[in-house]
Design a binder for these strands. Structure first.
Lengths: 133, 133
DNA sequence: CAGCATCCAGCTTGATACTG
DNA sequence: CAGTATCAAGCTGGATGCTG
């Protein structure tokens, strides 16, 4: 009924995640990836140091956090502020664009968290009817 | 300044994605995963059949789409309506909860798409200064 | 059309060890 | 503290072939 209608908005946009080759797909994956989302979410609470982030994002390894941070910095979502002191101190914070993205991301996260009771209930029903077959 | 303040909201919520063991983390991954997000986004445009979805979500394989759909159905975000006709016809559509989640997700997607020029510019700057070193 | 089962390459990830 | 380097293991995902 409205497929072609709504699809029209794709034409208006310069970028379209639905297209395999669109660069927005890559960035979306950095943002929504396993650690990208949590990192942005954590940083939304304020500037943080490397090991602070590591503690906040439960389960992330040093390597993955480092990698995630590099990708987000490259995309201009996170700013890295290194002080050449000893011991070194490096602070990470969201850029204005990063903040915008993080806001939407947190809205999504909170939405999911807020619906988990429904989700868990749905899962039980699903597993039940499946187990019965 | 506001770390502990804002962190307080974690206590209020029954679920918290930042905790490694929280089930919301898994659901968030279904939603934001490589194909989950695009599938929900496509379904937001309206009910679709399996192969319709496959064409819409550029690049997804049969296996991955099937897998993704199962996860989303189990989480109660997508409803599967199978008609026992021949040839078989199966329609997928968002549930009310799925629709809510998809809305937030699309807000995020459109935000990223809308900021791609900034992202791409940031990348160039990043690669330049890095390549120079 | 709408899928499931299997095989397998390769990318992702986590441990571990090391550097400045 | 803030990372980088390396390696093995495991999971992801694509190709193929088959079913109802």
């Amino acid at each position: 009924m409205n497929g072609t209608q709504e699809r029209a908005e794709d034409q208006d946009l310069a970028y379209n995640v639905f297209a395999k080759a669109c660069p927005s797909r890559g960035t979306l994956e950095h943002v929504t990836g396993r650690w990208g989302g949590l990192t942005l979410g954590a940083l939304y609470e304020g500037s943080m140091r490397f090991n602070e982030l590591r503690r906040r994002v439960d389960g992330v390894s040093e390597k993955m956090l480092s990698q995630t941070l590099h990708a987000l910095e490259r995309d201009g979502l996170v700013h890295r502020e290194a002080q050449p002191t000893n011991p070194p101190r490096v602070d990470y914070e969201l850029t204005p664009v990063g903040r915008e993205v993080a806001e939407r991301l947190l809205a999504l996260i909170h939405c999911v968290e807020g619906r988990m009771d429904d989700v868990l209930a749905a899962r039980e029903r699903y597993d039940e009817t499946r187990g019965a077959l």
